[in-house]
Design a protein around this nucleic acid. Structure first.
Length: 609
DNA sequence: AAAAAAT
């Protein structure tokens, strides 16, 4: 797992990085696949040995941490609260141990470091517009010190090298410490995982020791009753959140368990049996666990949905609704509910409000902040020419001599396989991740990509959201998605933590329905829109005129849908007016600010994660 | 139409 270095609060004054691991893989970039570690698709599944992941770096304590006085097993203050059985957490494995660069980061370290140190620009985020609505919004804080999160958590914040809270953290943490429900929209890499984890962990530490759960109703002695549930839409994202949450919980006594499909359930059952305060899960596996009565939601005090709009879209909504509304989860108002996403279409906000009570809507950022760091290009490329065009891009990348990662999005799983093997045949070290690969393959692909061993990853939308992959310099939309929100999430895999990034899209007639929203988004992000794309966008059949609802029409605009009813409808000349809205800092009354002027309006945020 | 998510 990567260190949470995506945060803007990531230290500028970081202590020197630990020495690079001695384990080195041959530099993979220049001359084709690194044969020692890379397994091309046609050789996979032949020999387990050849596909075995590289030896892990030896476990290593983060420098100066374990030896630090006070980092001992007996935290003081409320951190010392004994947990059920209190067993063995003095031997809790150090979640910071893998914070060192992954093997394979080694030879790229110089290149990478350059990127690491150039991009973080705190000042760029100082005047980031923030909008809140709802009753009695607790004021934001400027520093972690202002928030009483407790000694143990504060120490972990230091270990994570967070020096000050990011904008979303400054606002969201006080809101959620005040016990309020929250719908939050925040930018790429802005530390939103921490924004919901800190209050949850702190709340669990302060809260009453878990009451003896009500047995009965099918509950056995082996039924786990977590206090907090964090749902996410993909397995890899759940793993990532789990890794982060474990770091934040280190030596607090708060136990974090992850449960997702595609992996043997037995290990997860064992983890649950050892005790769980925070359960991170994907919906399918959680439903399974609930049906087996190995998990009960009756003690849930905190519910967080990451990528909340995704969790409530057509594919997921029934399952999520079942978990939240039809199991033994306490109702809104009893539990505290927090929804986080970048994109938040209004119809999804409306649906989400079923899960919330008296909530606060929070939007952080706008066009011209984060996305300006992502240079967006669109090129007209016929289907038949895509491969050679991609090869040109990859050659150009290679010629820069920099070791960087390139993430290539395609529309279908088959397309991912076939592009991957074509790249490999042509000497490019590529791997792939999609839902038809088994979980081991998925995890290996991601590791191999992150470490730089396979610096090209071909992916479906399974990798579009939330994944924090440092050093992705280039996102290629080999196939454009049909939904502008997906585009926003995809390009948000680069340009994270204040670093710059590049996103290239291949556009052709098959993508005409995206033309308008894409042109708008680019315009709002101060990107140059090719004239041909503007012409596409102006074609009436592609939304140039009418109210183009989905496929772009309802992109999140930094607005609380509750303030919406009176805002629109008048001056509704521009069909897309509901698409805009984030920019006006003057509160929500000023509907007139949104109607006019065609494209250049105060824009919708774009790389909101 | 496709992707994801349980076995």
């Amino acid at each position: 797992m990567a260190t949470p270095r995506t945060s803007w609060a990531d230290v500028a004054d970081a202590e020197p990085a630990p020495p690079p691991p001695v384990t080195t893989a041959p530099a993979p970039a220049a001359n084709g696949p690194a044969r020692s570690s890379y397994v091309p698709p046609h050789l996979r599944n032949r020999s387990a040995a050849s596909a075995a992941p590289p030896a892990a770096a030896p476990p290593r304590a983060a420098p100066g941490l374990l030896s630090r006085p006070g980092a001992g097993p007996a935290p003081t203050g409320f951190g010392a609260r004994p947990r059920g059985g209190g067993r063995g957490w003095d031997r809790e494995p150090d979640p910071f141990a893998d914070s060192a660069p992954a093997p394979g980061d080694a030879e790229g370290a110089a290149d990478f470091e350059e990127h690491q140190n150039t991009g973080i620009n705190f000042d760029a985020y100082e005047d980031i517009p923030v909008e809140t609505s709802g009753r009695e919004v607790p004021p934001p804080v400027a520093t972690f010190a202002e928030i009483d999160l407790g000694d143990a958590l504060n120490q972990n914040i230091r270990r994570c090298r967070y020096v000050r809270p990011t904008p979303v953290q400054r606002h969201a943490i006080p809101i959620s410490l005040a016990g309020r429900d929250l719908m939050a929209c925040a930018q790429t890499g802005s530390g939103k995982t921490a924004a919901f984890c800190f209050p949850i962990i702190s709340g669990i530490m302060r809260g009453p020791p878990a009451a003896r759960p009500q047995r009965g109703g099918g509950m056995g002695m082996r039924t786990a009753c977590p206090s907090a549930l964090i749902l996410s839409p993909t397995r890899e994202l759940s793993m990532q959140i789990h890794d982060e949450a474990r770091k934040f919980s280190y030596q607090t006594g708060v136990r974090v368990v992850v449960a997702y499909g595609g992996a043997p359930i037995t290990g997860q059952l064992r983890d649950l049996e050892r005790g769980v305060d925070i359960l991170v899960a994907t919906p399918g596996r959680l439903v399974d666990l609930l049906e087996r009565a190995r998990v009960s939601l009756q003690s849930i005090r905190y519910l967080a949905l990451d990528e909340a709009d995704r969790m409530l879209d057509m594919g997921f909504e029934p399952q999520v609704r079942r978990i939240v509304e039809q199991m033994d989860m306490p109702p809104p108002g009893v539990r505290q509910t927090m929804l986080f996403s970048a994109t938040f279409p209004k119809e999804i906000q409306r649906m989400a409000s079923d899960f919330l009570e008296n909530y606060i809507f929070l939007a952080v950022g706008r066009v011209g902040s984060s996305t300006d760091l992502i240079a967006q290009r669109v090129e007209f490329v016929q289907e038949a020419d895509k491969r050679s065009h991609l090869m040109d891009l990859l050659h150009a990348q290679r010629d820069t001599g920099k070791q960087t990662l390139t993430l290539v999005f395609v529309e279908t799983k088959r397309g991912a396989d076939s592009l991957e093997s074509w790249l490999c045949m042509n000497g490019f070290p590529a791997t792939s991740i999609h839902g038809d690969r088994n979980q081991q393959e998925r995890e290996y692909a991601l590791r191999s990509f992150k470490s730089g061993q396979t610096p090209i990853l071909v992916a479906t939308d399974v990798a579009a959201r939330g994944l924090d992959i440092p050093h992705v310099a280039h996102v290629v939309n080999f196939d454009l998605p049909n939904d502008i929100d997906d585009y926003v999430h995809r390009i948000g895999r680069t340009g994270r933590a204040g670093k710059s990034g590049l996103a290239t899209a291949f556009f052709n007639d098959n993508n005409s329905s995206l033309a308008r929203s894409l042109a708008e988004l680019m315009q709002e992000s101060n990107q140059e829109v090719p004239a041909w794309l503007s012409r596409y966008a102006a074609r009436p059949s592609y939304g140039g005129g009418g109210r183009n609802r989905r496929s772009g029409g309802s992109h999140f605009g930094g607005r609380d849908f509750r303030n919406d009813s009176s805002s629109f409808g008048k001056g509704g000349s521009r069909g897309g007016s509901d698409y805009y809205g984030g920019g006006s800092s003057g509160g929500y009354g000023g509907s007139s600010a949104y109607g006019g002027g065609g494209y250049g309006g105060a824009g919708a945020p774009s790389a909101w994660d």
